[in-house]
Simulated assay, not measured.
Amino acid sequence: MTNIVLFGPPGAGKGTQAEFLKEKYNLVHISTGDVFRYNIKNGTDLGKQAKVFIDEGKLVPDEITIGMLEAEVDKNKEAEGFIFDGFPRTEAQADALENFLNKKQTKVDAMLALEVDDEVLVQRLLERGKTSGRVDDANEEVIRKRIKVYYNETAILKSYYQKKDKYYGVDGVGSIQEITTRLSEVIDKL
């Protein structure tokens, strides 16, 4: 089983790359953003709670996020592995993921971090906001706050996974195919 944490700031291309990687390596893509949007759209209790935080550009509390994530993993018991996109975001979440996967007799194999300049991220997200209907991508102030939250609260995971020799920084600028090739080169060596 291959389990990858796909990491990077909002707009780095995690969702796009995850689509290619899941097909190539036969993995299940679990995007916390997609899980949150599904729960919000369907008005679940967890979705209503998560919406308040997302609308303010804040991280959703661990207990909500972990509950949603565990349910997604459990739905895919026969999976060959997972791409975790948008999770973990904190050391506490990384520990919770590790503990959860240990119970399933597996582990995180690598954190692949897409590295992209902040101004490129802002422009990507504003463009996405024009077509996606996502309100969190339509407001530059909210976008910049999300990027700041990423650096302040989640960048610590870089050192967390570096200590475990599982961190791989990958240039997230270029064509989709170029970025996919860079990510694949890392995965193929795992």
Rank of each mutant, 00 (worst) to 15 (best):
I30Y: 12
I30L: 15
I30Q: 13
I30A: 05
S31N: 11
S31K: 08
S31Y: 11
T32A: 01
T32D: 09
T32F: 04
T32K: 05
T32Y: 08
T32G: 01
G33R: 14
G33Q: 12
G33K: 08
D34Q: 11
D34H: 03
D34S: 05
D34T: 10
V35G: 01
V35N: 01
V35S: 13
V35R: 05
V35P: 08
V35K: 10
V35D: 07
F36G: 11
F36E: 06
F36V: 06
F36D: 05
F36W: 08
F36Y: 15
R37G: 01
R37E: 00
R37V: 07
Y38I: 12
Y38T: 14
Y38F: 14
N39H: 15
N39Q: 10
I40T: 09
I40C: 06
K41M: 09
N42R: 10
N42Y: 12
N42H: 14
G43T: 04
G43W: 06
G43K: 13
G43P: 06
T44V: 06
T44Y: 09
T44R: 07
T44H: 10
T44P: 09
D45K: 15
D45H: 07
D45A: 14
L46N: 13
L46I: 13
L46S: 14
L46D: 13
L46M: 11
K48S: 01
K48L: 03
K48C: 00
K48T: 09
K48D: 02
K48Y: 03
Q49N: 09
Q49G: 00
Q49W: 00
Q49R: 15
Q49I: 09
A50R: 13
A50S: 13
K51A: 14
K51F: 06
K51C: 01
K51S: 10
K51Y: 10
V52K: 15
V52W: 03
V52N: 06
V52T: 14
V52S: 11
F53G: 02
F53P: 03
I54K: 06
I54E: 05
I54S: 03
D55P: 04
E56I: 00
E56N: 15
G57W: 04
G57A: 04
G57K: 03
K58Q: 14
K58S: 10
L59D: 09
L59I: 09
L59P: 02
V60Y: 09
P61Q: 04
P61R: 02
P61D: 00
P61A: 05
D62M: 05
D62W: 06
D62Y: 05
D62G: 10
E63Y: 15
E63M: 09
E63S: 12
E63W: 07
I64K: 01
I64G: 05
I64C: 01
I64D: 05
I64F: 09
T65P: 07
T65N: 01
T65I: 00
I66E: 04
I66M: 12
I66A: 03
G67E: 00
G67L: 03
M68H: 10
M68G: 04
L69H: 11
E70S: 12
